[in-house]
Structures are given as C-alpha cells and as structure tokens.
Design a protein around this nucleic acid. Structure first.
Length: 235
DNA sequence: AACCCCCCCAACCGCCCTCTT
DNA sequence: TAAGAGGGCGGTTGGGGGGGT
C-alpha cells in the first residue's frame, strides 16, 4: 500500500452502500483476499478495514442481541482457561465475534471485578482470593497458557466454517472444559452474582438487507448446528 | 429540560504470524 | 532461506444512546 493511496482511504463508520458493496464482493471472491477485495470493490477502505467490517458486522452467521446466560458462562469458563484469547474463545461461541466477546468482557467482568475488589476491601477479609478467580477477572492471560502455535486453527469466520483442523477432541462441552482445566474456584461463586433475569435474551440473527447478496450458504456454510450442539449443551 | 455519567459497540492501531515469491 | 506482503489478533478509543439527577 503506497502512501498516496493511503491518504485516500476512508475511515470511520461504514455506510450502507459500502456494506452492500463489500458483501457483494466477498460473495464473489470469498473472505480471504481482503486487500484484493478492497481494491476491486472500489471501496476506499483498507483490506483490514474490510475484513473487520465483514467479520464483526456483515457475516451472515452472526448472532445479534445480548449474550445468553449460557454463553456468558461459557465465556467465563473459556477465559479462565485461555485468558484474553478472544478469537479463540469466539470460535467456541458460534455467531459471536472476538470483538463482541472482548467488549462484553470489558463491560461486564470489569465491573464485577471492581465490585468484588470493593467488597473485599470493605470486609478486609484475610483470606486471599483464589488465584484462578482473580485471573479470570483480570485481563492478562493465564501464565500457563502458551499462545504459541495455535495458528493453524481455522477461524470461525472462515468460509469453510467448521473447525476441520481441530483435533477430534478439540471441541468440548463446558463440562469437559472444566474438567480439563484446573479450575479451583467454584463457578457458582462467580455466577451467583450474576442475575439470570436476562434469560429471555434474544438471539435473533440479523436481518440486514445485506443478506440478500448471499444467495446460498456455499461460501460461508458453517456447521454451526454441529458446533452449537456440541458446545452449547447445558453444563 | 438540561446536564452528566455510564454502558455498549463499532472501528482503528500496532504487533505478530503466516504465506508467497 | 530470506524478505516482503497480507492477514489475524488483542488492545484501545471514541461516539451514540439511555438512564439518573
């Protein structure tokens, strides 16, 4: 990307026309060659920007609406296992993006962490918090997690969809995750605090006109059924 | 009614990794 | 094998909207 072109690049919010244009070209060329798509589409956006817009907003498989309690629980569990590996966590929550989960964590969990801290300082309890509990509430990845070489995992957003390269045992239920992680704190301790009054959260899939440009699932057919069945079982 | 604060979320930035040549 | 380009990811920011005072 040379400099003169860079200067022409648009930034900021996407317009509906841009969305339509992007969806059209992703439909034509797939969701891999982002620089190419950015060029041929005529959008004055960087490839990165196009990718982000697609992944976080235009992708047909995205769920809209608030996290369900079960999703929240899953996020909590996976975060306790993987730390801030948002994209990785997102792969286990079909229809949710790393950005969404990241934002969710920031707003909800930070708040909870602050509340806990406050409560703790007030009670001036001598008991030190359990290490995993604190780590689950922090933004730093768990030290035991080795981020190296998780790379060949296919992204949830891949047009191929299914995590074909994942080992057969890779997809686990929440229970299995819990079993395989040395979670020493009680999940109830944390989730006790959550109000489950939001049970009726909607999971409506976006009904944007953009989807009109997606004639079939061929490009982005994702085995969500399978993954969600596998993952979203009651814990 | 006006102002302030907080929450939510889209989007950008910079770094790092992988792929291609 | 090395270098450059492209893509992915995590962190951060800023604006809009809703609720409270």
């Amino acid at each position: 990307m040379n400099k003169e072109k860079k200067e022409e690049m648009r930034k900021g919010p996407w317009t509906e026309e841009e969305d339509v244009q992007l969806a059209l070209y992703v439909n034509l060329f797939g969701d891999r060659r982002w620089d190419f798509i950015a060029k041929v589409s005529g959008l004055k956006r960087t490839g990165k920007s196009c990718r982000l817009r697609w992944v976080n907003y235009l992708h047909p498989g995205l769920k809209r609406g608030k996290m369900t309690p079960h999703e929240e629980r899953l996020v909590l569990q996976l975060h306790s296992k993987w730390g801030n590996r948002w994209s990785r966590i997102a792969r286990k929550l079909p229809g949710r993006t790393d950005n969404e989960i990241k934002n969710y964590w920031r707003t909800h969990m930070r708040k909870k962490a602050q509340e806990k801290k406050k409560a703790k300082s007030q009670s001036s309890s001598s008991s030190s918090s359990s290490n995993s509990s604190s780590s689950s509430m922090s933004d730093s990845p768990r030290p035991e997690f080795n981020p190296a070489k998780e790379t060949k995992e296919r992204s949830f957003y891949d047009t191929g969809g299914v995590d074909l390269l994942a080992a057969p045992g890779e997809i686990k239920t929440g229970l299995e995750i819990e079993e395989n992680t040395n979670i020493v704190y009680s999940m109830d301790d944390i989730w006790k605090e959550f109000e489950f009054s939001e049970e009726s959260n909607c999971q409506a899939v976006a009904d944007s006109p953009i989807w009109d440009y997606c004639p079939n699932d061929s490009l982005w057919s994702m085995d969500h059924e399978h993954e969600s069945n596998t993952l979203m079982q009651p814990i």
